[in-house]
């Protein structure tokens, strides 16, 4: 039983990270209908920037958590600037372009960011110094570290704040209006361009936090780390219903737990025929199954056939 609880905890930690990255995808998608493939690279830039900043702050002799916070506070504005620039330079000119053009642009931006990061930070893996306590605690017979608890809590708080922002503030209302119909929102006096810029900036700030969390938890950062993470997070966003904030969270957590349980129990489920090498097959299979029965994801609204 404690093994099962451990797997659920593993899934929750992993899922919190997925969810946080998935929010960035889903916000942009909700407003522009664009898969921002470069979002994973923003996460990577957040992680590497924070790491560089931390490297500079460590000699100052401050306590570990303060140093990490300092790194985070530097990474967030950097990522915000990157997100703003991406939208301005690459996506805005394509607002009225055919549907797939922005997708190709996103792939191009992703390649460019990765190569620039490789030039700036080099090809080697960077290690995150052990600044945060990583001693395991016992919880129902399973192990969890302070850092992992922190990750789950931070992710939950950020998501709650985001939901509040979108549903309770003026800006949030402008975002929802833009997502509904940009042309009408403009007529109602919403500065659509600003709302879109803000969405990118906000998503990038979340990406920075996610990047630091990934780097701290796995103690590793690398210029090519963003791609797989982005892909998983995107899958999570679709699973939950892309464009829906609650869906991204649910999708992220679910995907994390599915992966954990898949790796842990797929062998027993198939009588040893398949093993943890089919972990991703299992995750994608669940995704396909969900989409067959709910074509717009778990929490996606039922949309007309033509958007």
């Amino acid at each position: 039983m404690d093994i099962f609880i451990q797997q659920i905890i593993n899934g929750l930690v992993l899922g919190s990270i997925y969810a946080l990255v998935a929010l960035g995808y889903t916000m942009v998608y909700g407003i522009l209908g664009l898969i921002n493939f470069a979002h994973g690279e923003v996460v990577m830039i957040g992680a590497l920037t924070a790491l560089t900043a931390i490297g500079l702050l460590v000699p100052a002799g401050l306590p570990g958590p303060v140093v990490v916070l300092g790194g985070l506070l530097i990474a967030i504005p950097v990522c915000m600037a990157v997100g703003f620039a991406i939208e301005r330079i690459a996506y805005r000119p394509l607002r009225n372009a055919p549907r797939l053009a922005p997708l190709i642009t996103a792939i191009g931006v992703s390649i460019v960011l990765q190569q620039l990061a490789m030039m700036g930070w080099g090809r080697n893996y960077h290690t995150f110094p052990p600044l945060l306590p990583a001693t395991p605690h016992q919880l129902f017979g399973a192990a969890i570290t302070d850092l992992q608890m922190l990750i789950v809590v931070v992710a939950a708080v950020l998501m709650a704040a985001l939901v509040w922002l979108v549903t309770r503030t003026r800006l949030g209302r402008a975002m929802r209006a833009t997502a509904e119909n940009p042309a009408v929102a403009r007529l109602m006096g919403v500065d659509v361009d600003r709302v879109i810029s803000f969405t990118f900036v906000l998503g990038s700030a979340l990406a920075a936090v996610a990047g630091v969390m990934v780097a701290a938890n796995y103690s590793i950062a690398h210029y090519a780390m963003g791609f797989m993470l982005g892909l998983k997070a995107f899958t999570a966003a679709v699973l939950g219903g892309i464009g829906n904030l609650g869906g991204a969270m649910l999708g992220g957590l679910l995907l994390g737990i599915i992966e954990s349980l898949g790796a842990g129990y797929i062998g027993d489920l198939t009588g040893g025929f398949l093993g943890s090498n089919y972990q991703d097959v299992f995750a994608f299979f669940v995704l396909i199954l969900v989409l067959v029965f709910r074509p717009s994801g778990l929490m996606g609204e039922k949309v007309a056939e033509r958007a």
């Binding site: 093994i3 451990q6 797997q7 593993n10 899934g11 930690v13 992993l14 990934v214 796995y218 590793i220 780390m225 797989m228 992966e259 954990s260 349980l261 898949g262 790796a263 842990g264 062998g267 093993g275 943890s276 090498n277 972990q279 991703d280």
Partner: peptide, 22 residues
């Protein structure tokens, strides 16, 4: 006792290590 798998791009091994532990 068990043969588990990951990928060369993975960063999270908690699930398979938990399996190994069992």
């Amino acid at each position: 006792v068990t043969r588990e798998y990951t990928t060369d791009k993975a960063t999270d091994f908690a699930a398979i290590l938990t399996k190994v532990k069992s």
